[in-house]
Amino acid sequence: MTPGSTSAACAALLRRDLTLAWRRRGDIAMPVLYALIVATLFPFALGPEPTLLARIAGGVVFVTVLLAVLLSLDNLFRADIEDGSMEQLMLAPQPLALLVGMKILAHWITSSLPLIVVAPLLAGMLKLPAPATPVLVFALVLATPLLSLLGAVLVALTAGSRRSGMLLALMLLPLCVPVVIFAAGAVAAAQEGLPWIAPIAWLGAGLAMAVVLAPLACAAALRIAMDT
């Protein structure tokens, strides 16, 4: 790879973000811890009855993961904007959308992948029937990158504004409604012994579209945010 080529740039940026995450690996544990705490609260609030928990398990895991991803998203671009790295990225002779895509990928690896790993544990705590667990993991593998991509666009839009986590939640809600519906729908269908491939396919279609469009939208939004 020649330095300065697009592939070298992507590799350098990915490596940078992963190194940074590794140097602060305590932060990687935070979303996982958060998800564990939220999932633990549900049995206390609703009672430990296994049939009730089994009915809500899929939905609870998805909402919990969604909130954990939302919390971690806020810092996606902020650090780079504050220390001037974003200016360096924008002026680099590379397509900004691709670089942004690399940042989203690094973010997904460091924040969503650990959540997917603990998801079976959460599902087990909430008595999700074992046959539905693989479907849950499968749905999460498709849904979490979709959430990261959609969230990244909104984070980019709020990047130039005053700090506001609530605003991000308000903006993300309409975008993640379809993701939650299809992801949780697949698990619910699997639990009832119905075919679950259709909602998974919709998630896949959404992800394919978001992989192409979201980095472009993100780059455009960042240009607006840096235009001060």
Partner: peptide, 15 residues
């Protein structure tokens, strides 16, 4: 882009 290099108030360094 890339023909110009910019050094601003924010240095663009990762601490």
């Amino acid at each position: 882009a890339g023909a110009v290099v910019f050094l601003g108030h924010h240095l663009g360094l990762k601490l």
